[in-house]
Design a protein around this nucleic acid. Sequence first.
RNA 1: CGGGGCGUAGCGCAGGUGGUAGCGCGGCUGCUUUGGGAGCAGCAGGUCGGCGGUUCGAGUCCGCCCGCCCCGACCA
Length: 591
Amino acid sequence: MRWSQSFHVTLREAPGDAEVVSHRLLSRAGMIQKLAAGIYSYTPLGFRSLRKLIEIVREEMDATGAQEVDLPILQPKELWVESGRWQRYIDDGILFHLEDRKSGEFALAPTAEEAITDLVRRSVTSWRQLPFNLYQIRTKFRDEIRPRFGLLRGREFLMKDAYSFDVDQKGLDRHYEKMETAYRRIFERCGLEYALVQADSGAIGGAASEEFMVVADTGEDALVFSDAGDYGANIEKAVTAPLAEPWAGEEARPFGKADSPTPGLITCEDQARHLKTDVTRITKTMLYETIDAAGGVRVVAVLIRGDLDINEVKLPKALGVMHAKLLDEKFLPSIAGCRPGFVGPIGLKAPDGQSEVPIYLDRSMENARNVFCGANAEGLHHSNLSVKRDLKAAGVVEVATAREGDPSPTGKGTLRIKRGIEVGHIFKLGAKYSEAMKCEVADQAQKMIPLMMGCYGLGVGRTLAAAVEQSHDDDGIVWPVALAPYQCALLSLQRDAEVQRAADELYESLKTAGVEVLYDDRDERPGVKFKDADLIGFPVRIVVGAKALAKGGVEVSTRREKKAEVVPVAKVVEIVKATLAAGARTLAVFA
RNA sequence: CGGGGCGUAGCGCAGGUGGUAGCGCGGCUGCUUUGGGAGCAGCAGGUCGGCGGUUCGAGUCCGCCCGCCCCGACCA
C-alpha cells in the first residue's frame, strides 16, 4: 500500500481521555477511534491487525476440529429466561436489551450459551452424533458498569466463543485440554508472554475454569505464582499452604476480659503497636451480610488473623451462599455495640429473625491461642483469646487473600505476584445449561442424558490491546510480526528522482516477494516519516535515502532494536524475509 | 450504582470578579527547506455539550438533562 493513497492518519497527541498506553498508542497510530464510551471503530490499518488475529484464532480452532458457526446477536428473552440468566444479567445491569415493535423483548448477546444450546438441542438426538465443538468469532455486547482502558474493556467487543458438547465427563475433559493447547498456540503465535492460571468461574458458572493472562504491569488482575513454577492462580482464587502460627507450642493463658484498651485505634497495625505485640496476634472480626440460594439473608462473622485480608470473591463459595457483602457500618452499633475496629466474636447480638450470629474462622485462626480480639466496646480489646476454648465456631473456611511471600499451596516455593490482562477463559460448564434447557440425547442404554458442555472464550480485540500493553516503547508500538498491520515500512526520504525510482522499484519487488509493505511515499520531511513508522511499529523498516543510495545501498532495521544496517539493494528482499521469519527481533545479515 | 472531575476549532489546551472567544499542533495557499514531528507570509475553521432561567448583556452565574474520564463492586 502506498501511504499517499491510503486513508491513513496519525495523531501527534493522544485524545485526552485515553489513559492506558494501548489506548493512547492505538489511537495515535490511527488504528482505532472512539465512537462512544467502550465503543470503538477500527480503521483500515487497525482492522488489518485485527484480521490477522482473527485468522490465527480461526486456524487454530479449525485445527482442533472445531466447526465455525454464526449465531444471532439479537436473541429473544424467552431463551434467557429458560437458562435463568435473564434476571441475573438484568439485575447486574450488564445486559443490553430492547423491545421490538410488538413489545417482544430481546437481548444483545453478551455470550451465547443459550443460542448454542438451543441450536444443538434441536439438531441432536443420539449419542452417536457426539462429540463436537462449535465456535464463532462475533461481536458481543455488555453494558459494562465501567467501560475503560480503550479496547481492554469495551461495551461492544469482538470475542471468539467456543462450546463443546460431550456425552460424558471424559469427553469434556478431552475437549478442555484441546482448547487449552489451541489457546497456547494462539498466544505463542502472537508472540505474547502469557500465563495460564486457575480462576473463579463468575457469572458463567460451572466447575473448573482457568484463565489465560497476558503478563503486563497495567493488567487489571493480580496473579499469584509459585517461584517453584508449579502453581499459578488469579488472586480471586489463589490459596496458600497453612501459614506458620506464632502461638505454636504455647499454653493457653487465662482469658483477659476487656483488659486491653485501644483508644481510637482502628487498624490492626496501630493496635498491635499500642499493645506491644505482633499484628498476627490481633484478630480481625468482619461482619458480612449473606444471601443464600433461597434468598435468605443472614449476618455472619468471619475471624481472620490481623495481618491477612478476606478475599471477598472466595468468601461466598466458602460460606455456601450466593452473595456475601461487608455489612454496612451503620448496622454495627446494634449488632456489635461499637464502631469498626473493636468488633469481636464474643457477645454479638443477632439481628431480628436470626437466633445468633454464626462465627466462621479463617484457617489462619483455627488454632489461635493467646491473641487479642475486639471487645465489642469502643476502644477496648480482650486479651488471650483461645479460639477452641472460648468460641463455638460454625466452621473453618479458607478465605484469606494470598500475599507475596506466602508459601505455595503445592508445598514447593514461595508465592510471587504479577499483574495480567485476562485474554482467554476456559470453563467446564458440565450440565448447567443443558439441564436447564433440556439439551439431551439418548445414551447407549436408551436413557436420556443432558450433554456435558464446555465453553471457551477469547477476547480478540482485548488480545490486540494486550499485545500493545506488553510491547511498546517511548516512540510507539512494537508489534509482534504476527499482528503488525504491515510487516514492513518502506520510507523514501527525498524527492530526488533517483531516490524515488529506487524506492518504487523496491516497493514492487517486496510486493512480488509477498512481503506486506506500507510504502511511505508522502511528500513529507524525513522526520515525520521516521516518527510515524516508529509510532505504528512496523517490525521492519527500510529507508531509501540519498546517502546510502550513493553507495548502492538502503538502510534496514528492526523496530525492536532500531540499529540500521546499510545493505545492497539487491539483497534487501532476502534479508527482510529472513528477518521476519526469525521474528524481527534482530536483523538477519548475510555475509 | 456510590465518590471525584471534565465538556471551548480536527487534536491538545487557556479564557480572575458577566461586556460578544484565543494559544499550540494539525489543515489550506505561496515561497523556502529536505536524515528524527522545519521556517516565513497569508487564509480557513466555533450552534463555547443541550435545554431553561437570572441579566441591558452569559463560555463565565443558577437549575435540569446529556456525554466523557478517574477511583470502587462485574468481565473476554
